[in-house]
Computed example of a mutant assay.
Amino acid sequence: MGGPETRGRSIGLRACGCAAVGLLLLGGCTSGEGTEEGKAAGRTTAASPTPPTPAAVAPSPTGTVLSLVPALDESKQPRTPAEAHELLARIVIAEDALGPDVVRSAPFESDPGRWPVLDADCVWQTEGLPPDVLATNTRYFHIPAANGHGRVRINTTVTVHRDRTESGWETARAMEEVLRCPDQKLREGEHLKGLLGNSVYQGEQGNNWSEDAFNELGTHTEAGGGEPQRYFWYQAQFGPVTVAVAGKNAAGYAEDALMTLVVQGNSRMISQAKQALGKAAG
């Protein structure tokens, strides 16, 4: 998370949905729980889109699906803001991880001391970091307008909490925000409409790559008019870390192409989080 723009979370759960994350992770994008009350809060909407099971997740010889989530190495978990910032540096990605047409935006990074909050009127504001967050970073990218399409925007966010309980609560709150505010205001003249959310724990609906995954689907509108465009959001959790990628589409750009970039970025970051904090095999 980083600023109000970051937190208008939405993901196009089309034919791929969460399955795309599993497929990309199986392809090797890089080498290499929250509380029960909080999790229950993320499963209370019948309107949530339900992603299909990844067809490429091969069963083991015993017939069970192989997990891509290692055990968390508690000794590697950061305890101070300084340690958390060192971990962030190992997880965040640059534009080359998203695609050859993606470039940095200005500003490139969020204020590291600010945190987005959805107020009672469904308007995004920023506040100082809450006590459970050790460090957070949001980076802003875009695909310049060209070849008949408008400017496409992509944001990536990594947040390091004090423990996995707090990161689990972040995912639960994300679901609550969609239920409470299916229409949200990012800033003056920019809105999200008709948001739907889906939260999937490890082992459910083919999720074998994350302790908890959250997806959203909706549209966004901007000042100056124009047709509403798709807004995408993928979020995943491992231990005390959450990673997320948002994609804001533009007229003339294929939704499937943007979804691929969003999933690719999320897969890269969650893989790097597991490499940094997971126990070594064997």
Rank of each mutant, 00 (worst) to 15 (best):
E255I: 13
E255F: 12
R173S: 01
V103W: 05
A251G: 10
Y201V: 12
G226P: 05
K279L: 13
L179A: 15
S267K: 02
I93A: 02
A257Q: 15
I270M: 00
G38D: 13
G38I: 05
Q275I: 14
E176G: 13
L129I: 07
L129Q: 00
G150N: 09
L23H: 14
A41D: 05
L129P: 03
Q77P: 00
A97N: 06
G17Q: 14
A40L: 14
E170Y: 13
G282N: 04
L129M: 09
P240W: 08
G226H: 11
P116N: 05
G128F: 03
G239W: 05
G218K: 06
N266Q: 13
N266D: 14
S67H: 01
E188G: 05
E190Y: 08
A47N: 08
L118Q: 10
R114I: 02
R187G: 10
S271K: 10
T6N: 11
L72Y: 00
K279D: 01
A172R: 08
H149S: 09
P144D: 03
T136G: 08
D111P: 04
S105W: 03
D96W: 04
K185L: 10
I154F: 04
Y253S: 07
A257G: 04
M175E: 12
D256Q: 14
K39S: 07
R164S: 13
E170M: 11
G282T: 09
Q235N: 13
L24P: 00
P4A: 12
T136K: 06
T159M: 11
L98E: 06
P78R: 06
G148H: 04
A281Y: 05
Q202M: 04
N137Y: 02
L68K: 08
T53E: 15
F214G: 07
P107F: 08
E216T: 11
E95W: 00
D256L: 15
A213N: 09
Y253E: 08
P182H: 12
G34C: 09
E166P: 00
A135M: 07
L66D: 11
L26M: 04
G197T: 07
E222F: 05
P130W: 01
A213M: 15
L87P: 06
E211T: 02
G12R: 12
V92G: 01
A71C: 00
Y201F: 04
P130A: 05
L25T: 13
P131G: 09
D101L: 03
P182M: 06
G42V: 07
E227T: 15
E37P: 00
G3T: 07
G206V: 03
Q205A: 12
I91K: 08
T242Y: 01
E37T: 11
A172M: 07
A280M: 05
E37I: 12
R139Y: 01
A213G: 05
A213R: 14
P228L: 03
E176S: 14
L134Y: 06
N147V: 01
